[in-house]
Design a protein around this nucleic acid. Structure first.
Lengths: 149, 149
DNA sequence: GACATATAGTTCGCTACCGAACATATTTGG
DNA sequence: CCAAATATGTTCGGTAGCGAACTATATGTC
């Protein structure tokens, strides 16, 4: 991205890209992207879920979610139905096809983690996570507006 | 991406997204994206450069670079001319407009780093960078093929 | 010199991500 | 009860990223 002249920042990006590329390589035969996988993961484990809940779950914005969902609907893996209680909301659920697919899927995350962080002790991993979590929070708190008061 | 159930992996992604979002917020008034910024950075500091060199510099693939370059050419910030020595290669250089723009640009990376990692001591930052660098290398080495022997 | 191979870029089609603007539906305030 | 505000989703247009397939140019090799 540019951040060649720093270290942690640049490597966070590169790590992210490498893992995303790998997840997508694993998922390609199944016609799924990384974010699509996570939507299926949620639906398989938690059952039907309002679409809006995925915003916080995936930490993405509405247009991104809208795209991901419509890809899954187009492929026939997910069903999107209006909530009778609130006509604004949509409930997402696995279709039969989607559930069938899920059964055959590998867990790409487990694979990535075992390759990427094998042999790193958990204290170190916790430290890394903490530094990055704090960095993320600072960026997100700063970004929204420049104003506080 | 999914990696909600791990720690360092998930936060590397979230940090990356937060910083990219912020860089793009800073650059939006100038009609530039994060990767586009880095191309200008290189050209401003190193002068005209063969397009192919940016593949290693930015660690991106050819189609991505092709897109970024054509966006910059379209906007009139960069000039793409064939290398007389080798008709396959293209040389990239700043236009007058591009150089003019560059002078007025803030350095988004410095801003990000100061916000994100302010107060973190450099030993810790080095450790984070090392863990992520190793993770990236393992992923990249594993990915290309599954075969060794 | 001719043919095979390697290199540089582009194009196509896709995922993933965002902000802005929009349509609807619900909730709140007067 | 009705107008204003809020919440949910979609659409549009953009950046950033990839693999596969393609063109054109160079470089071997026989």
């Amino acid at each position: 991205m540019s951040d060649n002249h720093n270290s942690a920042g640049a490597w966070a990006k590169k790590y992210h890209l490498a893992s995303r590329t790998m997840i997508e390589r694993i998922l390609r035969p199944y016609d799924l992207g990384s974010t699509q996988w996570y939507v299926l993961y949620q639906l398989a484990h938690q059952g039907p879920t309002p679409q809006r809940d995925f915003l916080a779950l995936l930490q993405i914005e509405k247009p991104t979610l809208s795209d991901v969902v419509s890809a899954l609907v187009r492929k026939g893996f997910v069903e999107q139905t209006p909530d009778p209680k609130d006509q604004r909301q949509r409930i997402l659920a696995l279709t039969e096809t989607g559930r069938g697919l899920w059964e055959t899927l590998p867990d790409p995350i487990a694979l990535i983690l075992s390759i990427a962080f094998d042999g790193v002790d958990s204290d170190t991993l916790d430290l890394v996570a903490t530094v990055l979590r704090n960095a993320t929070e600072r960026l997100n708190n700063y970004a929204p507006e420049g104003n506080e008061t």
